[in-house]
């Protein structure tokens, strides 16, 4: 019992520490003053300001489009890559490919960003939306590969043999057996790539040019002149959206679980053991 109480206390302290800054940020988005020093009364002003700041809203939309597009392309490229790596029969070659993939995952963003910047300049590629998109695709692909490969590896080869046995050609095996089997990994890879792209500051900072910027880079440059409470308002909205997304995900999961349980009443054939 005592153990339980200590555990609860520990968790409460932990979550308070984690959520306090966010709560503080949300609270001050309603502050009538202009800084985070001292509460001066309630106001919606910063939200009004935010919604009339078309430049910032444009950047939010750009960031979302960038994340969606880069995640989508990275998922396609990464899925193909995972299939190719998994098909390698030569163990040395397979491990080399895997290691090359993993090195990209652990190498610091600053280095990836700097090297991409050098690449783009050497090639005479102008910095902007397209260069950022390329950069995001590049660092998302290894994540997607990493999410999909375990599913592929646990898939029994006899499933492919069975599909061929039943008359499926290579393409039908891929679309009707392999892809559905790895789809949870593909989906997870897509969402990981999406959030990595939304999050990313370091790489993006290097490869965004003059005309194009993402939210993280924009907030950084604004913060250098002192954070306006408009940013607090924006953060509050983003925080709310993510909470809604998490709740939504939770509800879907619950429903899927319940359906599964309802179906689980088995009929047992005579003479058969469970």
């Amino acid at each position: 019992m005592l153990k339980n109480k200590t555990a609860h206390l520990y968790l409460m302290v932990l979550f308070t520490l984690l959520y306090a800054p966010i709560f503080f940020l949300v609270l001050y988005s309603f502050n009538a003053g202009t800084t985070m020093q001292g509460w001066q009364g309630f106001t919606w002003n910063h939200y009004q300001e935010l919604f009339s700041d078309y430049h910032l809203i444009e950047i939010v939309l750009d960031t979302l489009i960038l994340a969606l597009l880069s995640a989508l392309i990275a998922t396609i490229v990464g899925t193909v890559g995972a299939l190719v790596i998994n098909r390698q029969k030569n163990r040395v070659w397979k491990n080399t490919l895997l290691s090359l993939n993993n090195v990209l995952l652990v190498s610091p963003d600053v280095i990836i960003g700097a090297s991409l910047l050098i690449l783009f300049t050497v090639c005479g590629f102008s910095l902007g939306f397209v260069s950022t998109l390329f950069a995001h695709i590049a660092f998302s692909i290894p994540i997607v590969v990493l999410m999909i490969l375990p599913r592929l590896q646990e898939m029994s080869h006899s499933l492919i043999d069975a599909a061929k046995d039943l008359g499926a050609n290579d393409q039908q095996v891929l679309s009707q057996v392999t892809l559905p089997y790895i789809s949870p990994g593909v989906l997870a890879g897509f969402f990981m790539a999406f959030t990595y792209s939304l999050d990313d500051f370091a790489v993006t900072f290097f490869v965004t040019g003059n005309g194009f910027t993402t939210l993280s880079v924009e907030i950084y440059s604004r913060a250098r002149q002192g954070v306006s409470l408009e940013i607090n308002a924006l953060s509050t909205i983003m925080f709310l959206v993510s909470i809604i997304l998490v709740l939504f995900y939770y509800l879907i999961n619950q429903r899927a679980n319940r359906q599964r349980k309802n179906k689980l009443t088995k009929i047992v054939l005579p003479g058969e053991r469970e």
């Binding site: 029994s156 006899s158 043999d161 069975a162 046995d165 039943l166 057996v177 089997y181």
Partner: peptide, 10 residues
């Protein structure tokens, strides 16, 4: 057609 040892059901 084959009935596989581990059934290999999809």
């Amino acid at each position: 057609n084959t009935v596989f040892q581990n059934y290999a059901l999809f």
